[in-house]
Design a protein around this nucleic acid. Structure first.
Length: 778
DNA sequence: ATTTTACAAATTTTT
DNA sequence: TTTGTAAAAT
């Protein structure tokens, strides 16, 4: 029998063995819930359940991938392959591609990301002649999102007087029509936004009993991770799919619910018990991750919340280090302190930099830490923020692909119709739009039909330009059909003149845009290569474009980011763990955020967020805050976060210098601090009249001998790195980031457009375009 | 139609 | 600080 079951504690084991019927697992932080989920699935398969019948919903695609790998190690690769595993959004996007035709969607519908959706709304507000100061696109978008996540269709909205009253009170009586218009516009564009992926799934399952039955039969066993962060829409999907076999297992921790702003509903955990009164409930309370001090400190924080399920998280781990609380003079000094501590701890404990993470409340805080780490030559990687696929130039390129694949994609059309400039401006676009709305067709269709267009007062010359543009898009569609993903993408990027325009821009920004586009083409090639290695993979450009909106930064685990300090928001850190964690910016109105201090519920969510942050740490945690911080273009004074006071003091090591400006020895409890800029620097100068301020570009800590020298590229995201070799000759030995080393056997063409055939040492032969291959000599 | 210039506003977290 | 938008000039 399975030996892996012996690695579980009694509570974990019961949760794994209870395969039949509804199960809820309340899993405290670090209590091994991933292990339970993995073993549970492995155990099911060992008992003869077909992997095809198991659906496992995770919070990130990365979590899904990792879990799949772990299961594959237990039961074998081929067995694990057919598991349905992924985020709600990606799993149901896949189902909607197969079944969406029931609802009138094409299988290649576009997924609008938040930016696309916001632009649609902005345009609608403009079209309807509404005041955008009152109808703020962002507010409207959030409101619509809330409707969708609660399954409130326009029809239901019209019947819900309290909702209408709310919108009237907010001076937005036309919210209902705006909502209807938005749905209509997305539908006609053949597009779904993130919320639609769930809403339409619900619609599909509710309206088509045969489809529901099909997936109920398929998903005999359903598992949901991070259940506390599911919203109503997701809850209903799970309920519908599980209602036949009721083999549903949800895993969650109410203390880690941090996504209510996205519609997540802790009530789902309580509802579970109500829906399935006979459900087995297991509590995992032993923490295997963190030291005594960290676990107890975290417990003392969460105790301040009123709304919570009873549970007592404990650990048998060693007592560990106290949590260091550090007060810095400025945000500049804070980041300097953090980078210094990272350096010292890595030296003292021989920890590589991958053991450290810096967690902050807002993405904007990352900047100063980047600077500080760079000054010390410490490699780091930033997660989140503006992801690669959200960059303007990347989205522009993708919009060409999108439009070629789905002519109705209105956002893509608007984005590229005049990019590069081809004399089709706002006036023309407005006229096209009038026609499109009158005839209820897409902008593309109107633009393509020059005769129709000329009626609307569009000049003949402009009509010609429109026709040319549409013809070009059509031809791209043909090329995409004919070619492999990379060469099709390359064709479009060149043919459209996008790349040429970027190359003509000689500013550093222009150069970096070109590099990003090249990186995108690289990614497309990698994708196609990867798909070819999978049995039933689809290497087409269409497949690449389809789910790109669902890829998040957390999903991209670069091969080499294992030894880098991780910088991310606390939200993004959920589910991760690090030996040493810095929670920075522990100040009132930053953490807790100013926006979330108004009600008790909001504040409690911030507190849970802090709980999540602290419980990421295994061995050592630092909490830092600054006395003054550069924000909104000026320096402001800060108060330490109330959360620090809420921690049981016996777990803390307070490093809070006396700030009396007239005592001169106490304010820097550590060596090697750089001095700030701006007002804080002036402040410090006053303090030490005798001592001239040190300069920042000379870190006082000398590099230690014997340490791996850090190349500068370590700290730079890969897509900002320089290009590789420009030219190769036959017989040359080269190295490729992905394929390893090999020998050049043939070169055709010249310069950057040369194509090299390379015999790689692992046996494969590849043709690579010099321009993008980024080869190195060996 | 497009480019330049000036000025104002805004800053939470994400699939 | 950066970002976007509006008005004015080409």
């Amino acid at each position: 029998m399975s030996t892996y079951l012996d690695q579980l504690n009694p509570a974990q084991k019961s949760a794994v063995l209870a395969t039949e019927g509804p199960v809820m697992v309340i899993a405290g932080a670090g209590s091994g819930k991933t292990r339970v989920l993995t073993y549970r699935i492995a155990y099911l398969m060992e008992r003869g359940v077909d992997s095809f019948n198991i659906l496992s919903l995770t919070f990130t695609n990365k979590a899904a991938r990792e879990m799949k790998e772990r299961i594959a190690r237990l039961v074998g690769d081929s067995e694990a392959r057919n598991l349905w595993m992924g985020t709600f959004h990606s799993v149901f996007a896949r189902i909607l591609r197969a079944e969406g035709h029931h609802l009138g969607y094409p299988s290649n519908f576009t997924i609008y990301d938040t930016e696309d959706a916001r632009k649609v709304i902005t345009n609608l507000i403009k079209e309807m002649n509404l005041d955008k100061e009152i109808y703020k696109p962002k507010t409207v978008q959030n409101r619509i999102s809330a409707f969708k996540n609660n399954l409130i269709t326009p029809k239901i909205y019209d019947r819900r007087e309290e909702l209408i009253a709310q919108d009237s009170a907010a001076k937005m009586p036309l919210m209902g029509s705006l909502y209807t218009a938005y749905l209509d516009r997305c539908f006609r564009s053949g597009a779904m936004d993130f919320d639609d992926l769930l809403l339409k799934t619900n619609e599909l399952l509710a309206k088509f009993p045969a489809v529901l039955a099909k997936y109920q039969d398929r998903f005999k066993y359903i598992m949901v991770d991070e259940y506390q962060d599911t919203n109503h829409s997701q809850y209903i999907i799970v309920k519908a799919l599980a209602s036949r076999f009721e083999n549903v297992c949800v895993v969650g921790d109410d203390a880690q619910s941090i996504y209510s702003f996205r519609g997540a509903n802790i009530q789902n955990i309580l509802n579970f018990n109500r829906d399935y009164p006979e459900a087995n409930i297991y509590k995992l309370e032993q923490n295997y991750r963190s030291s005594q001090h960290i676990v107890k400190a975290a417990n003392s924080i969460i105790a301040h919340n009123q709304d919570q399920l009873q549970k007592k998280v404990w650990t048998s781990n060693e007592e560990g280090e106290l949590i260091t609380v550090f007060k810095a003079i400025s945000d500049y000094e804070e980041s300097n302190y953090v980078s210094e501590q990272i350096f010292e701890w890595s030296q003292r404990n021989q920890w590589h930099y991958g053991n450290f993470s810096i967690l902050y409340r807002t993405n904007a805080q990352s900047r100063s830490f980047e600077d500080a780490l760079r000054r010390r030559n410490i490699p780091y990687r930033i997660y989140g923020g503006l992801s690669f696929y959200q960059r303007k130039e990347v989205k522009d390129v993708l919009a060409y692909f999108r439009l070629a694949l789905n002519n109705n994609d209105e956002e893509a059309f608007r984005r590229v119709v005049n990019l590069p400039k081809r004399g089709i401006g706002d006036t023309t676009l407005d006229r096209l739009n009038v026609l499109a709305q009158e005839n209820r067709v897409s902008l593309f269709e109107v633009a393509e039909n020059a005769i129709l267009s000329s009626q609307a007062g569009i000049q003949a010359a402009t009509c010609k330009r429109l026709a040319d543009f549409c013809a070009a898009i059509r031809s791209y569609a043909v090329e995409i059909e004919k070619r492999d993903a990379f060469s099709a993408a390359d064709y479009v990027v060149r043919g459209s003149g996008l790349l040429r325009e970027m190359e003509e821009d000689k500013t550093p920004e222009g150069a970096s845009r070109v590099q990003n586009v090249e990186e995108l083409l690289n990614a497309i090639q990698d994708f196609a290569d990867g798909q070819l290695q999978i049995e039933d993979g689809d290497p087409s450009l269409s497949n690449f474009v389809q789910d790109i909106a669902l890829i998040t930064d957390a999903d991209n685990s670069g091969e080499d980011d294992g030894k880098k300090v991780a910088l991310m928001t606390v939200h993004l850190a959920k589910g991760l763990e690090f030996p040493c964690v810095f929670v920075v910016g522990m100040e009132e109105s930053l953490f807790p955020s100013m926006m979330a201090m108004n009600t008790r519920t909001e504040l409690e969510e911030e507190r849970r967020l802090f709980y999540v942050a602290l419980t990421r740490a295994e061995k050592k945690a630092f909490l830092t805050y600054a006395h003054s911080r550069f924000r909104w273009g000026k320096t402001i004074d800060c108060e330490p976060s109330r959360f620090i006071d809420e921690i049981d003091e016996q777990h803390l090591d307070l490093q809070i210098p006396d700030f009396n400006p007239f005592s001169d020895e106490t304010f820097l409890p550590y060596s090697g601090s750089g001095f700030g800029k701006g007002s804080s620097a002036r402040f410090q100068k006053k303090l030490n009249k005798s001592e001239p301020p040190k300069t920042v570009d000379k870190p006082t800590i000398p590099p230690v001998k014997g340490m791996r020298p850090l190349s500068s590229s370590d700290a730079i995201p890969s897509y900002e790195r320089g290009q590789g070799l420009k030219e190769v000759v036959k017989g040359m030995r080269v190295q490729h980031a992905r394929f390893g080393t090999g020998t050049v056997t043939f070169v055709e063409g010249e310069g950057p457009n040369a194509k090299a055939t390379i015999q790689f040492d692992h046996g494969e032969e590849k043709k690579l375009l010099m321009k993008f291959a980024k080869l190195k000599t060996v």
